[in-house]
Amino acid sequence: MEAGDEQLMLAYREGDAGAFEELYRRHKGGLYRFVLRSVRDRPLAEELYQEIWMRVIEARARYEAQAKFSTWLYTIAHNRLVDHWRRRGLSLVALDQDREESAALDPPAGPGYEPQRIHEAKQGLGRFASALAELPPAQREAFLLHAEADMSPAEIARATDSNAEAAKSRLRYAMAKLKKALTDD
């Protein structure tokens, strides 16, 4: 039977480098896309992504299998992204605001964000990608956590240090906006 994420992290804490490799293999794609689609700038996403894993490595000694590993991992990712947004002057309140209000602080996709440019060429998918990019950061984050880490609203709340109702509401708004983008096709 395949070892669980939590077991692998505990094994890594004990010095088993192979356990980390397996853990990394399982989560690298989801985490990378989560970060990339949150900041929409490839060089920046790569920098943040590396920092998140470095924090996981540094914090291994303090890891306790009290929650799902993925929740712990995405909590670290969320904290790192919040740091990044704060550095840009975006407050937690602004993260929930609509795009028009936070546009200056959550700038358009950077030059390295190829998928959006590629997909913009394709009509329907491009509109969907744009709708995703247009979401307020907190709603986009809730949707990405749901889509990439398969998190429930309760888990999203835990990873983003909010309450379940707020997480559920963010996810519901995100879903509604993305669905609208699909029906507009």
């Binding site: 896309r33 790569e46 992504y49 998918l125 969907f128 995703l132 519901r172 879903m175 993305l178």
Partner: peptide, 22 residues
Amino acid sequence: MTEDTRDSTVSARYRELGAEEP
């Protein structure tokens, strides 16, 4: 999870965006 937080068409379309890897 309720219907308004889980939508298979949205999820399917999201997957079509591509599975970028580091």
